[in-house]
Design a protein around this nucleic acid. Structure first.
Lengths: 156, 156
DNA sequence: TCTAACCTTGACGTTCCGGTAAGGTTGTTC
DNA sequence: GAACAACCTTACCGGAACGTCAAGGTTAGA
């Protein structure tokens, strides 16, 4: 079984895999969205596959939901809790602590779900409007073409 | 029939109706997203109902599609063309010009439609994942509660 | 006429990075 | 083992899309 936390990717590799710039990866680190990676002797950053996944998650949340990095941090931190919960499932002790973590994760996930549902319905509405408009344009275009043919025939 | 281009709203009114700040309205004007409004003698800006609608359109595009103001400008300009086409429908003259405008409007609208469809499907996928996760959380929660009850019973 | 509420134009601050500079590290080749 | 390209480091400036004062002008009502 592979330890998925072994860090062996340099920043360039991660940038390529995730489609973000090295600048962005350092920025996320600065803002606490990525844990400070381990370093080589010379100071080069070393990332793990988990880091790659985390970056991909961040980008998806940004792209689809269009929310701030601060909010995204809350969400991905909740993901971290999920991993923790799953990993040490279950030491039987510290039940109240686990319960709080789980409640927090549920809360964040529900909020995220609500945003998604809301946006989906808004966008479907928008899509319908655009579709109608395209049909209108198509009919206008036919009108125009007819007029053009008539003009051409008259001018002949 | 009311001339919808009569400008009688001050910037504060418009800000309130649209939910954006006055700063944002001035910024949109600066960037060409809103036509420079007429002014009162003292220099106060006067907006029309059409301006309000335009601002609402801009915000919706930004919020739902998360695209740049430059791209939004293209889209709302295309809307303007639509209004023009509809208004002077049809002076019979300048057909090639009209055709080009219409083609541009169709192109922009189709691009917008494609973005919407793509995002909708991505978000639906995300919604499904979140739903699954919530179910998982719910089952964990039940587990936790069972453990708590057992612990309480043993400690009694 | 005076005052509260509203507006004006700056100018600087913030978020989320992109670009570029000036220099250190790594790995390969001669 | 010295050179060299490719890769990395920190650091700082720039831009988009505004937020937030600041200092003063305008309007409408008492």
């Amino acid at each position: 079984m592979s330890d998925s936390t072994d860090a062996n990717l340099q920043i360039g590799e991660v940038a390529e895999r995730t489609g973000v710039t090295q600048r962005t990866l350092r920025f996320y680190e600065e803002k606490g969205l990525l844990r400070p990676p381990t370093r080589m002797e010379g100071g080069f950053r070393l990332y793990s596959d988990d880091d790659v996944k985390r970056v991909q998650k961040i980008r998806k949340l940004q792209d689809l939901l269009g929310i701030s990095l601060a909010e995204i941090k809350e969400m991905v931190d909740a993901e971290g809790i999920l991993r923790e919960l799953r990993a040490q499932y279950r030491p039987e002790a510290a039940l109240p602590e686990k319960r709080r973590q789980l409640e927090k994760a549920i809360e964040v996930t529900q909020a995220q779900y609500a945003i998604v549902q809301h946006k989906v319905s808004q966008m479907q509405e928008m899509g319908a409007q655009l579709d109608e408009r395209l049909k209108l344009f198509a009919s206008w275009m036919k009108e125009l073409e007819k007029l053009e043919r008539e003009t051409a025939a008259a001018g002949r």
